[in-house]
């Protein structure tokens, strides 16, 4: 799993180096390797549909649904009413309340400091207080 994650992280630096089809295939391959690791979070009993892998120091808000096929990196803060499926969140990310992300990749150090946002098959990056200020690349 770690090798696939590193490969995807490298691609984020130069996204044009890979086709959408190749990226989707990389994600599918990664999802088959995600194991369940959910015992180490900070927060209040979210719903998990396995497999979900949480790195250290992940903070989860109320009424959150994670999975299936979700990887969450270290030092990530997830707001209330967030739903993630088939999604990769890299380290040091902040997600606001009521975000629904499906088949998405959130780049390291991204801050989605806003609420009420739904997104599908997109790479999201940047530090933004509104959806409009976020860098988005659909795939």
């Amino acid at each position: 799993m770690k090798e696939e994650l590193k490969a995807i992280e490298r691609i984020l630096v130069d996204i044009k180096s890979i086709s959408k089809e190749e990226l989707n295939n990389m994600l599918k391959s990664l999802f088959t390797k995600i194991s369940n690791h959910i015992d180490n979070y900070i927060g209040d009993y979210p719903t998990f549909i396995e497999p979900v892998y949480l790195e250290g120091n992940v903070e989860i808000g109320d009424d959150v649904l994670l999975g299936p096929n979700v990887y969450i990196g270290a030092n990530v803060k997830i707001g209330d009413y967030v739903e993630l499926s088939n999604t990769i969140i890299f380290d040091d990310v902040i997600l606001g309340n009521n975000l629904k992300l499906e088949n998405c990749i959130i780049a390291p150090n991204s801050h989605l400091n806003f609420e009420n946002f739904k997104c599908n098959s997109t790479i999201l990056s940047g530090k933004a207080d509104s959806e409009k200020n976020l860098t988005k690349l659909s795939f």
Partner: peptide, 9 residues
């Protein structure tokens, strides 16, 4: 098997 942990549901 696939496990769903419903938390508070």
């Amino acid at each position: 098997t696939v496990q769903i942990n419903t938390g508070r549901e």
